[in-house]
């Protein structure tokens, strides 16, 4: 058994919460640049200019990129030979508490009925994956409410197939319009069960923007969806333009012979995520 001190997890999580909220990932910055160059409309170009100024300012001033510093979402890959004395789950929550407090981040977690704030952005949303070995990988995402609200899950009939999937995804992005802060990243989870499809969709959002889906069929489908979405003309912040989304990322999983679960998880342009291996 490999023991990883809880303190090490707490520090790593707190650091990810703070840095992810201050520094926009390099792949997102690069994609902004490419997409801005491809825009004709002055309004679209102006939004890209502001977003660049914003990430430069956040980096310089230490202010968060966005006031919605999100619910803290984690994908944790735990080796079966790893032990965190005191508990891994508790250490992650403690790291969130510390990071959101010390980083002057907004605490957005509240009771669904009373709407009273939990005060420290916990409990974090944590998805565990148990694997052989003795390493611990923690991936963090600061997920904002605006884009999350525009996300949907549906249970299609198998007969609807790819055409049905395609239509649902494009219609969702069209209906969301300016609300989720476009240019967005669209995570699509296909298959599994009612609860697995949205987890697949969210996990797909953790991929690098310019990585190529290892499944050539899915890679082609990602491109097909992105091209169609960008023909909608919604544009940056809904002001019109060629860039409604920066990328589409698809993940699939075998499903029941009776089902075709589908989830669309929308990520705003402030795609804040980070990963650490302990």
């Amino acid at each position: 058994m490999r023991e990883i001190p809880a303190e090490k997890v707490i520090e790593a999580v707190a650091d990810m919460c703070i840095t992810a909220n201050r520094y926009l990932p390099a792949d997102v910055r690069a994609r902004f640049e490419e997409c801005a160059a491809n825009e004709n409309s002055p309004a679209a170009k102006e939004i890209f200019r502001q977003l660049k100024e914003n990430y430069e300012l956040a980096e310089k001033s230490g202010l968060p990129l966005c006031q919605d510093t999100g619910l803290a979402v984690f994908f944790v890959t735990v080796g079966e030979g790893v032990c965190v004395p005191g508990g891994l789950r508790a250490a992650i929550d403690q790291g969130v508490r510390k990071g959101y407090q010390e980083g002057f981040l907004r605490k957005s977690a509240c009771d669904p009925f009373k709407r009273t704030n939990t005060g420290d952005n916990t409990p974090a949303i944590v998805h565990f994956d148990l694997v052989p070995g003795d390493t611990l990988k923690i991936a963090f995402m600061a997920k904002g409410g605006g884009s999350e609200n525009m996300s949907r899950v549906t249970m299609l009939s198998p007969a609807q197939g790819w055409e049905g999937i395609r239509k649902f995804v494009i219609e969702r992005v069209a209906e969301a319009g300016p609300n989720p802060c476009p240019p967005t990243i669209v995570g699509v989870g296909i298959g599994g069960t009612f609860e697995l499809a949205p987890i697949l969709a969210k996990k797909a959002l953790m991929r690098e923007l310019d990585d190529e889906n290892p499944d050539p069929d899915l890679a082609a489908k990602e491109k097909e969806l992105l091209d169609a979405i960008n023909r909608l003309g919604i544009g940056p912040m809904g002001l019109g333009g060629r860039t409604t989304s920066l990328a589409v990322k698809i993940a699939k999983h075998p499903c029941h012979i009776a089902s075709l679960p589908l989830a669309v998880n929308i990520q705003c342009h402030s795609a804040r995520h980070k990963e650490v291996e302990l």
Binding site: K167, I170, A174, A228, I229, L232, G233, G238, G240
Partner: peptide, 13 residues
């Protein structure tokens, strides 16, 4: 109203 109307035809749906 300033917001762009999504062009569903152009997107193929």
């Amino acid at each position: 109203d300033l917001y762009a109307k999504p062009d569903l035809k152009a997107a193929g749906i």
